[in-house]
Structures are given as structure tokens and as C-alpha cells.
């Protein structure tokens, strides 16, 4: 059989393989560089950075749940200045596209300022707009919602505003904590987002009956891991059929088969998240596993794989 083509285009960014990592689960990549060759990844997605340093939420910040975990880290990060000075140089040495995830807790101006800064940064291949972190509160979303990604209008306005200041590839990270994720994805597409990434964590809680306290410091946190995978696959499938921009699928990927679920549901690429904690070289295993599956099942390209789902029984 002829060569297997695993490359995928997302906006202006070319991924060598359809596998990246979810922001916040891979640090700034240096933490993982001793466990596998990072160049095998299609892209590295860095931990969400904000304009100013953020201390993050009070511990405990994580707890284990059935087939998953809750976190309430709260976007702890050193701020964009330190990120560009201390974290980016390491990544630049790897010749792997870097998706820089950004967020703001106040208003759109902070996102715009961050996007401006990154527009000048040669090493940043794409900007991920993290408008769906459940552990911080936004002031721009309409009353009754706390996330930009819970409001199609707010999503549209933010993406449009960022689009106006950068030519970099824009990826909008969506929240599953909505009634209709397709309408939010459509708003991001209409405003000029090059791709959507889904899903961020599902809000959740866990209470220790003996202490009668929440198992995490912030009381409510974000659920991730295999427990959320069916929800994520369903949302990726729905969104992929309704928008024409690429979808990066994620949520509970912990082996090759679970990554393939997302690609078959229509994702152009997948991101390994909590799975990175289970095995630091999991993304490497999945890249190889996808290639192997494509060879065995005669899929010459990722776009063929994306259309490979069967419906008739």
C-alpha cells in the first residue's frame, strides 16, 4: 500500500501527526521531554497563560473519581512575560508547532493583549482561546453564565476581536457545560476561528462523607478522564457534522482505540489530556497506534479516517 499520510492542516498550521495534548495536562512540555521524543507530536499545547501571573486555587486541587478526576487548579501560571522568556525558548528548540493556550478572567481586552503579544512571537504557531475553564469566572458572559463558552454571542464577540489583531491560527476551546454546543461552535466559526477544540472539563463535585467536605478546595471542579469520553465523542460528532472548520477532539483519551473514536466521529486531530498523567509517554503510543490502525485498515489519510464511521448495522 502507498504511503500513509498522517499530516493534518489546522488553519495555517501543519501537524505532522493528528495528535496534540490538552492544555494544562502537559505543563510546558519540558516535563515530558525525558519520556519520549516530542517531535512525534503534531503540536504541543501549553498550559493556559494569562496576562498577569496567577496563583491558582487553594489546595487540595485534584481528587480521583470513578474512571476520572476532578481538578480546581484555577489556571496557576507565571504570566505571559515569564512564559515568553522562560518557557518558550525550550519549546522553540523542538521544531514542533506550539499552540499557546490563553485565558482571561476579566474582559476581552486581556485576550486581545495576549493575542497581540503572541502575534509577534515566531515560535507560537497557534493561539488557543481557553474560554471554557470552569475554575475561573468571567465578567463578560451574560448573567446566569460564568463562561464565555456558555454564550454564543460572547464567544462570537471575543473570537472576532482576537481575529482582528492576529493572523495566527486561532483555536477556540469549547465547554461541554452547555445545552447546545453546536451553536457555540458555529459562533466561533462565523467569527473567524480556524478550528474548535472540545471538550474542556465537565463541572463536577465530590464530597467526602467522613469529613463532610468537598474533596477539592474550590468545592466545584472540572471532571476529566475516561468518565467523560462518551459525552466528548458525542459532542465532537455533532459539531463535526455542522461546522466546516477542523475539530480537535479530546476528553478521556487513554489509548489508541479511544483516540480513534474521536477521529471516526469527525475530529481532524485529537488531544491527550488526563491520559498524560496515567502514562507520560501515552501520546507517543497513540501516535504509533493510529499509524498502525491506518495501515491495517487501509486509510491513506486522516481525512479518509474522519469519514470512516459506519452507520448501517
Amino acid at each position: 500500500m502507498s504511503r500513509i499520510r498522517t499530516e493534518v492542516r489546522i488553519g495555517r498550521m501543519m501537524l505532522r501527526t493528528p495528535v496534540t495534548v490538552a492544555s494544562g495536562t502537559f505543563g510546558y512540555a519540558s516535563e515530558f521531554s525525558g519520556f519520549f521524543d516530542l517531535r512525534i507530536l503534531g503540536a504541543v499545547t501549553t498550559k493556559t497563560v494569562t496576562l498577569k501571573p496567577r496563583r491558582g486555587n487553594v489546595p487540595p486541587r485534584t481528587c480521583e473519581t470513578p474512571a476520572g478526576m476532578l481538578n480546581s487548579v484555577g489556571l496557576e501560571n507565571p504570566g505571559i512575560d515569564v512564559f515568553l522568556k522562560e518557557k518558550m525558548p525550550f519549546l522553540a528548540g523542538y521544531k514542533v508547532p506550539v499552540i499557546v493556550s490563553i485565558a482571561s478572567e476579566s474582559d476581552n481586552r486581556e485576550f486581545i493583549e495576549l493575542a497581540r503579544r503572541l502575534d509577534h512571537c515566531r515560535e507560537a504557531a497557534a493561539i488557543e482561546l481557553n474560554i471554557s475553564c470552569p475554575n475561573i469566572r468571567h465578567t463578560t458572559a451574560r448573567p446566569g453564565t460564568s463562561l464565555i463558552a456558555q454564550d454564543a454571542g460572547a464567544t462570537y464577540r471575543l473570537v472576532k476581536a482576537v481575529r482582528a489583531v492576529t493572523k495566527k491560527t486561532i483555536i477556540t476551546k469549547l465547554s461541554p457545560n452547555v445545552t447546545d454546543i453546536v451553536s457555540i461552535a458555529a459562533a466561533a466559526e462565523e467569527a473567524g476561528s480556524d478550528a474548535v477544540a472540545l471538550i474542556n472539563t465537565i463541572t463536577g463535585m465530590s464530597i467526602d462523607a467522613s469529613s463532610r467536605k468537598s474533596r477539592i478546595g474550590a468545592v466545584i471542579g472540572g471532571l476529566s478522564g475516561p468518565a467523560i469520553r462518551p459525552v466528548a465523542v458525542r459532542m465532537v460528532w455533532e459539531v463535526s457534522r455542522r461546522v466546516s472548520i477542523p475539530v480537535i477532539g479530546m476528553g478521556g483519551i487513554c489509548d489508541t482505540d479511544s483516540a480513534l473514536e474521536f477521529l471516526l466521529a469527525g475530529a481532524s486531530a485529537v488531544a491527550v489530556g488526563t491520559g498524560n498523567f496515567l502514562s507520560p509517554s501515552l501520546a507517543d503510543e497513540i501516535v504509533k497506534g493510529i499509524r498502525e490502525y491506518m495501515r491495517e485498515n487501509r486509510f491513506g489519510s486522516v481525512s479518509m479516517l474522519r469519514k470512516g464511521m459506519k452507520y448501517a448495522r
Binding site: 495536562t25 516535563e31 498550559k47 491558582g56 486541587r61 480521583e64 487548579v73 496557576e76 488526563t274 507520560p280
Partner: peptide
Amino acid sequence: HMACGIGACMGCVIP
């Protein structure tokens, strides 16, 4: 309690 053990998740912090 740790999730990753390698400094990536920021979960096991102390003041």
C-alpha cells in the same frame, strides 16, 4: 495526593 507526579498538573501544591 498527586495526579501526574512530574510537575505538569499543578495539583499537589502547598503554601
